[in-house]
């Protein structure tokens, strides 16, 4: 960590500030009696986020490494692959997980296709059978029953 001016360091304080504003705005009609704790926290979070933003802008805060394309590539790809799970695992867990693994593993940089196919085909089934046997209700239209 080094003290520097870096745009990526603004992301977290801006998110915090946005959250404090949204929290305050959405709770404006809540009776004061229920907000004794939440109002000071909201104000505190908003103010400290502004202080953090100021500290980043004047380069007085230790910041993390720059968000370069090379650093972002794999986390962003994983996030995009995870959308498969979010969208389809609720309908068919083994199929969605197989598709997710088949796509994510090579994109993360592992290109031994035989191993990729083996993991992507066997693991979802093992996870499905293992967890449903333990009572976790995972969905599958072709394996159920």
């Amino acid at each position: 960590m080094e003290k520097a001016r870096r745009g990526s360091a603004l992301i977290v304080p801006v998110v915090m500030l946005a959250f404090a504003c949204a929290y305050g705005w959405s709770n404006r009609h809540v009776p004061t009696g229920d907000m004794h704790f939440a109002w000071p926290l909201t104000l505190g979070l908003g103010l400290l986020s502004l202080v953090l933003i100021g500290a980043v802008l004047v380069g007085r805060l230790p910041v993390g490494p720059a968000l370069t394309a090379a650093r972002l590539k794999r986390p962003v790809l994983l996030f995009l692959c995870a959308l498969i799970l979010l969208g389809f695992a609720g309908y068919d867990f083994p199929l969605a997980t197989a598709a997710f693994l088949m796509l994510a593993i090579p994109l993360m940089g592992y290109r031994n296709w035989l191993a990729v196919i083996a993991v992507a085909l066997v693991l979802p089934l093992l996870l499905y059978w293992g967890f449903t046997a333990l009572g976790v209700p995972l969905a599958s239209f072709w394996l159920e029953g």
Partner: peptide, 10 residues
Amino acid sequence: YAVLVPVVLA
């Protein structure tokens, strides 16, 4: 990690 991370995410 390329194998481990997607498996852990699932």
